[in-house]
Each structure stands twice: as structure tokens, then as C-alpha cells.
């Protein structure tokens, strides 16, 4: 598979602070690559280095097989960026904003008009084209921010936390739009600290913490890295201590917790255990109002690898 981005041994300092530490990643053509990590983990710095917006102390960066430099206008024409902070003109309408940023890449008026309309359609802003940014809700503003970044139909798109502070409806719209862009052939680099989004979108994921890459791979491969398996949660009143003790003696169980009438049981990875749990509760005459099972998430992966939650 063709590699669109290749980053080797990237190291970036802010003064004495090492923001990115010897990072090695690659992104394959047509894939969605996720950069997952808590705030301050070096995701945005990595992207800014790749885009040549920041100087870095060490490492090599290639995009489309070429070294990225500030004056690599040919490379830049194939790239679209949606920054974390909304970057639009308050004085221009939705349409004019998209037209402006698209116009920085596309000179032909007819083609540009079509591209702008496509971007408006993709982001669902058809009803707001004459609105000014101040008149838009937070979610719509984020959608406008995306439309401005992708209107010129780039082959490679960087999306830096595009769903921060966005309502669920707009978030779904944005995620569907990203899937559509990928389906149309764009390679996407997606940074976020929302693990659900990464799990939903990305083919490959790199987990960053304190500027270092602590794991990389598909979500399945990442989950293989940890010991934790299924988690079963049971809502039940007045559970006897003897039963908890008996439960702990069952096979494959790593941890049992009972707090505030909620029983949490963590299993070793491998098998599914819900059926066995229901039988156990029935055999021990334990009545419960709710029972459900969860498979391990990337948050569990992050927790086990770093000892802290993703949203810390």
C-alpha cells in the first residue's frame, strides 16, 4: 500500500520541553489514521510539524514521497486542513468563507463554484449560506470550519479535533461527512481525545502520551496489547458478601467491585461470559434490575498502557 505520509524520528522541543519525542508513523493511501491522546500529548504539534507550520529539531517528514517545506506549494495544493480553532472571516457569509478558502487553491471560477456547493452539501449548510459566522451555532460553525478546509477536494485531509464542543447532531453530521470524504478517496489524519470517534472512524490508530507514541495499530491489534477482556455490570440491591467472595473464585475473573448497588466484574480477555454470569446469579438467587456487558475500549488500552484515563 502506498504511503502518503512518512514520519521518521520526529523530535520537537518548545524551549527545553520535549513536545514530540522520536515519533515514527506512516499513513497509507485511502485510510483514516487516528492520532489518539489526551490534551497536551503532542497531537497538534505533530500535525503542525508535518504541515511545516512549525520547525522541528530532528527527524524526516515526507508527504506524497516528497519532503515537506514551507514553499512546497505543489504538495500544499493536495492537502486540506481543519484546525482545532475555527478559522473563518466574521465579515464574510458562509458561502463567501468557503469560496475564499477554496479560491486559495482553485482558480477556475466554474470549478470552484461546484466545489463550494459540494462542500456546503457535504456539511449540511445549505440553509445557512447567507448567514455570517456570528449567526451560527457552535455545531454549525464547526461544520463551516470543516467545509473551508476540505472544499478544494484535497487528497490528504488533516482534521485536528474537529468535534470539540459540538452537539451530538452536528457530531454525527461531521463524522458521516468524514466517512464520505474517505469513501471518495481522501486519506485522512484524524486527531482527537474522543476514543469513540477513533473507534468508529479509523483504520489505524497511534496512541500518544507526553509526546511519545505508546502504541500503534488497528483497534483490534491495540486491544490485543492489554490483559483486560469483557466487563459485566449488574444493578442489584443488598448483595451478600458471601456471594461476592464466591464470584471471585470463578474462572477468568480479574476483578470484582461492588459499590452503590452496582456490581462490576472484569474478566480476562478471550471468552464471552454474560451467559455464565446470568446462570451464576440465578443459581445464587440474586435478583437484579439490569445487566449488561462491555468489550474493552481504547480507553482501557490507554489506561493499562499509561495508568491514566484518556480524558484526564
Amino acid at each position: 500500500m502506498e504511503k502518503i505520509i512518512e514520519v521518521e524520528n520526529l523530535t520537537k522541543y518548545y524551549g527545553k520541553f520535549k513536545a514530540v519525542d522520536d515519533l515514527n508513523i506512516y499513513v497509507e493511501k485511502g485510510k483514516i489514521f487516528g492520532l489518539l491522546g489526551p490534551n497536551g500529548s503532542g497531537k497538534s504539534t505533530t500535525i503542525n510539524c508535518i504541515l511545516s507550520l512549525l520547525n522541528y529539531q530532528d527527524g524526516k517528514i515526507k508527504i506524497f514521497g516528497e519532503e515537506m517545506k514551507p514553499n512546497s506549494y505543489n504538495l500544499k495544493s493536495k492537502i486540506g486542513v481543519v484546525f482545532q480553532d475555527v478559522a473563518v472571516f466574521e465579515e464574510l457569509s458562509v458561502y463567501d468563507n468557503i469560496d475564499y478558502f477554496c479560491g486559495l487553491y482553485i482558480k477556475d471560477k466554474k470549478i470552484r463554484k461546484k466545489y463550494v456547493e459540494d462542500a456546503i452539501k457535504l456539511t449540511g449548510l445549505e440553509d445557512f449560506i447567507k448567514f455570517r459566522p456570528k449567526q451560527l451555532s457552535g455545531g454549525l460553525l464547526r461544520r463551516l470550519n470543516i467545509a473551508c478546509g476540505i472544499a478544494h477536494k484535497p487528497e490528504l485531509i488533516f482534521l485536528d479535533e474537529p468535534t470539540v464542543a459540538v452537539d451530538p447532531q452536528s457530531r454525527n453530521n461531521i463524522l458521516e461527512g468524514i466517512k464520505k470524504l474517505n469513501k471518495d478517496g481522501a486519506t485522512i489524519v484524524y486527531t482527537t481525545h474522543y476514543m469513540e470517534e477513533v473507534e468508529q472512524l479509523c483504520n489505524r490508530i497511534a496512541i500518544l502520551d507526553k509526546g511519545k507514541m505508546i502504541a500503534v495499530g488497528t483497534k483490534e491489534a491495540l486491544k490485543e496489547l492489554i490483559l483486560v477482556g469483557e466487563k459485566i455490570t449488574v444493578e442489584t440491591d443488598n448483595l451478600d458478601k458471601k456471594i461476592i467472595k464466591k464470584l471471585k473464585e470463578q474462572k477468568n475473573i480479574i476483578e470484582v467491585k461492588y459499590e452503590d448497588n452496582i456490581l462490576n466484574v472484569t474478566y480476562e480477555k478471550g471468552e464471552e461470559n454474560l451467559e455464565e454470569m446470568i446462570s451464576f446469579l440465578k443459581d445464587n438467587n440474586v435478583f437484579y434490575s439490569k445487566i449488561f456487558s462491555e468489550l474493552p475500549t481504547l480507553n482501557d488500552v490507554f489506561l493499562e498502557l499509561t495508568g491514566k484515563e484518556l480524558r484526564d
Binding site: 506549494y73 500544499k76 484546525f83 480553532d85 478559522a87 472571516f89 486559495l104 487553491y105
Partner: peptide
């Protein structure tokens, strides 16, 4: 000032138009 906003400058910088031209 409008064109010098950090976010706008960033977006202009990564475009293929080039800051000089802008």
C-alpha cells in the same frame, strides 16, 4: 488585523496560494 488573526494566517500559510501572493 482581520487577515492577521492567527487562525486565518495559519490557514493562508498552508494553502497553495503562498503568503507573498496573499
Amino acid at each position: 488585523c482581520i487577515f492577521n488573526k492567527e487562525t486565518i494566517v495559519k490557514r493562508n500559510t498552508i494553502s497553495s496560494e503562498g503568503l507573498k501572493s496573499i
